[in-house]
Design a protein around this nucleic acid. Structure first.
Length: 575
DNA sequence: GCCGTTTTCGGCCCGACTGTTTTCAGTCG
């Protein structure tokens, strides 16, 4: 089987690690890192073009040499250069580079002078007091490295964006209570709404940095201070999440927001553009020589390069700079564009609230309609409904709608897609519904072909409306099942059905690149909360985050339609 | 290793913080 883009990226990253340990030309190392980032984020499978390696040189940062290596990796899963690097280095040494405080030079010295080859051995050597004896290290470095190695061994986690949101909101409230904080922005991957977040980058505009620093370090949730200086500080919260604070003057706030929002790839591309125009961009502003020409707002920074200001979710160097130069940025969907929610559970299956309670909560969340989509009988653990129970629910919804004009409740089901591609309930009862949401909950390890055929067959059912959580991933727990998303997208377009963006923070499925693939193919998506209780609608914001990262506008999302037009769109899917 | 309106060489993003030095290298984002 051909290697995936992620595999190619991983090979380049590993080569870069070894070259770094060898203290090779840093620009050569950067070329491998850039290439790793580029291919890993590339939305199309490179394997599709494996025959024509020359074509890979069209990718940014890929020249003749790397293009040939991509071809080799796609064919064999590895490449000769990597095999030879592995032969000449101790296998575990790469691990040392992952430990904060250990870079290539220290890793090399730790290996050569203390025989340290893994994080475990580093911790052992530090405990034995063997690190402080090395030149360039002292007692302080030794204890820092011990702590870092132990922390690394204990956990190497990223946080769901919802977990990051809770901690970001609480810390922001604490900081904003200070007179010294003029403006505040939680930047970084959190602001870009990535599906997971490694740490929080908090940016503050103030003329009194010392005061802000003090308030930050006094935050009751701080467990450990990693670093502190006049304009920045790093701490670990009690949860284990790292937070970096940076304080700049108000006139630099826009430049700092650009800088600390990233992504790294976006910033590098931006600086190259600036350099071509004889400008220099840093976190304090845009400079021509020593003269500052912009920096107070993000828009002012981008304007010096004749770029429209890009929403943070687009800043991944995936074409947003070109679109901004042409002033053709999409008008991204916003939470307030949603009129309803097409995936909601009640206590009739595995939800925790009644139909009436869920409807009331949806109304409070500002929605005009919801679809009740409880599980079907095959999902016994969730008390799935059989045909009789569904028929009773249909009648109950009709009665509810008659007495509650404030919100419309649509009749639906989250029906299991069985292994053979049939749906889990008979056509006769499905025909009585407003929509049918199909979902894979079992047999997740089928071959790519069988899994894909299974879902394509389900889409051919005369009542199929929406494919729920199309890849089945659970962030940090379970990878997506193996499925040909391009074929699903093409089929959804032919069948005029919809793909879901499941907004549960542990799903966010489709993800950003999947959204973009669907949108570019002309397939509409449904941003759905998959709520199981009255608080579930609060997750819609995270689904919107992925939609925005996928360049979606309101017109690309079916549940931005008012009720009447939504019903027309659904009716077309219901045979 | 990539790239090019300075095009086949000579550049390649840039500043803050720390510890161990005794003026700076290493690391990080």
């Amino acid at each position: 089987m051909a290697a995936t883009n992620a595999t190619v990226g991983a090979v380049f990253d590993e080569i870069a690690d070894w070259l770094e340990l060898d203290q090779a030309n840093p620009f050569r190392i950067r070329a491998y890192r850039n290439a790793a980032r580029t291919v890993a984020a590339w939305p199309k499978p490179l394997a599709d073009a494996a025959q024509d390696t020359e074509a890979f040189t069209d990718l940014p940062g890929i020249g003749k040499d790397l293009a040939e290596k991509i071809g080799e990796i796609l064919r064999t899963g590895s490449c000769g250069q990597l095999r030879s690097l592995r032969r000449t280095h101790p296998r575990g040494l790469r691990e040392l580079l992952r430990i904060p405080g250990v870079g290539p030079r220290r890793a090399e010295r730790l290996f050569r002078e203390a025989g340290v080859t893994t994080a475990r051995r580093l911790a052992d050597a530090a405990r034995a007091g063997r690190i402080r004896a090395l030149r360039g290290f002292g007692a302080r470095s030794e204890s820092d490295l011990l702590q870092a190695a132990e922390a690394w061994l204990a956990s190497d986690r990223r946080w769901r964006v919802s977990e990051a949101a809770q901690q970001a909101d609480a810390l922001s409230r604490h900081l904003l209570a200070s007179q010294d904080v003029a403006e505040l922005c939680v930047a970084g991957s959190y602001r870009r709404q990535r599906d997971t977040v490694g740490d929080l980058d908090v940016l503050v505009a103030s003329r009194r940095a010392a005061g802000v620093n003090r308030v930050f370090l006094d935050y009751p949730d701080v467990s450990r201070v990693l670093a502190q200086g006049p304009t920045r500080a790093s701490v670990v919260l009690k949860s284990g999440m790292q937070v970096d604070l940076r304080v700049v003057k108000p006139e630099s706030f826009g430049a700092a927001m650009v800088y600390f929002t990233g992504s790294k790839a976006h910033n590098l591309a931006l600086r190259r553009l600036a350099q071509k125009r004889g400008l220099k961009i840093n976190e304090y502003g845009v400079y021509r020589g020593t003269r500052r020409v912009a920096g107070e707002t993000e828009a002012s920074v981008y304007a010096t390069l004749d770029l429209s200001c890009m929403p943070p979710e687009l800043r991944e160097n995936r074409g947003e700079l070109e679109a901004a130069a042409a002033h053709r940025l999409p008008t991204l969907i916003e939470l307030r564009d949603l009129h309803g929610d097409l995936h909601v559970h009640t206590d009739a299956s595995d939800g925790h609230a009644s139909l009436a309670e869920m409807a009331a909560a949806a109304r409070r969340a500002g929605l005009d309609y919801i679809a009740i989509t409880d599980h079907s009988r095959h999902l016994a653990v969730a008390h799935g409904l059989d045909a009789d129970a569904l028929a009773r629910q249909i009648d109950a919804i009709d009665r509810f709608n008659a007495g509650h004009p404030g919100i419309a409740v649509l009749k639906g089901i989250e029906v299991d897609i069985l292994e053979n591609g049939e749906l889990d309930l008979p056509l006769s009862v499905l025909r009585r519904l407003d929509l049918v949401v199909g979902a894979v909950h079992s047999q997740l390890r089928l071959s790519r072909t069988r899994q894909t055929e299974r879902i394509l067959r389900a889409m051919d059912h005369p009542c199929f409306s929406v494919l729920a959580h199309p890849t089945g991933r659970l962030i940090g727990e379970r990878d997506a099942y193996d499925v040909d998303l391009d074929r699903l997208v093409r089929h959804a377009r032919e069948r005029s059905c919809f793909l879901e963006i499941n907004a549960q923070p542990d799903r966010l499925d489709l993800d950003d690149t999947g959204c973009r693939t669907a949108m570019e193919a002309g397939v509409r998506l449904a941003v759905s909360s998959d709520s199981h209780d009255v608080h579930g609608f609060g997750n819609l914001r995270f689904g919107i985050g992925q939609a925005r990262r996928g360049w979606l506008e309101a017109k690309d999302v079916v549940n931005t339609l008012p009720l009447r037009q939504l019903k027309e769109a659904l009716a077309k899917t219901m045979g």
